[in-house]
Amino acid sequence: MGRAANSNADDYIRMYKQMVRIRTFEDNANQLYLDTKMPGLTHMYSGQEAVAVGICEALEKTDYITSTHRGHGHCVAKGAQFKEMFCELLGKAEGYCRGKGGSMHIADQENGNLGANAIVGGSMGIATGAALSAKRLGKDHVTVCFFGDGATAQGLLYEVMNMAALWNLPVIYACENNLYGEYTKVEETAAGSITARAKAFGIEAHVVDGQDVLAVNSLTQKLVARARKGEGPFFVELMTYRYHGHHVGDINRTYYRSKEEEAEWKDKRDPITNFGAWLAKEKIVNANDLEAMGAEIKADAAAAVTYALDAAYPPLDEVDSHIFAV
């Protein structure tokens, strides 16, 4: 059911564009914060694009994801549009959640995004429940549960992995190990091996280079196909890196990680630069094509930001609507 990315240039180009869209979205969101035009704060996904894109490109629109506080990348990768996303970040009525959720709660149900979550690990039950729902209702939807290395310390993960394994649920637990939970190294918070924890429940677990979109996509396609046949659940640890701090205001971070380390990941392991170079080497596109794609996406983002800045706030009488569903 997943798209045949490995044999199709269009799929490669779409994956490249989706990664650039995420990076561009984040650059704009960061600028809105720096310009004090965005209420609150936000958490940048930059650096981790190959994870969201590699996974979501292996999913159908009807498949579900649950996301995290660092969720813009998942949202874009699952099919969301810039305009509604920027409106949401700015608390405007045309946002995906009518401005009620903001950066940490974007949900885009039409594209299968059951929502970002501001409680670390908070969506693990939701993802597992979506998988139970699909299985019970005889649908072949697969659910991917995104969470970070920090969330592996939450007990909920082990409760729901136990049930997912007992009941063979079509869920893939995608642990984005970006090496830091907030301001603390993963070595200081995670004992032993992360994948060994999934294996303890009899869940097949993989480690993959989260900076290599093709590696992520290829593995995910196989796992999604198997999950649809009832062979789930699965666990994937994706080794990746966040370029910004924990949130946009986390500027001075040398006390927990070095500038040399950051430069190393950005210069040598950037998922977009490396995939672009590969596309050029394989003569699927040339450097000019890549530049043109980037420019078009930048223009789209700029137009969406302008639109969102000018867009209306929700009417004040919406403050107490949507408490209960009809």
Binding site: G125, I126, G129, L132, R136, E159
Partner: peptide, 16 residues
């Protein structure tokens, strides 16, 4: 309890 309560939330969001 947290696990199966959370599973119910996700199931409820998706048609159950």
């Amino acid at each position: 309890e947290p696990g199966f309560a959370g599973i119910a939330v996700g199931a409820a969001m998706t048609g159950s």
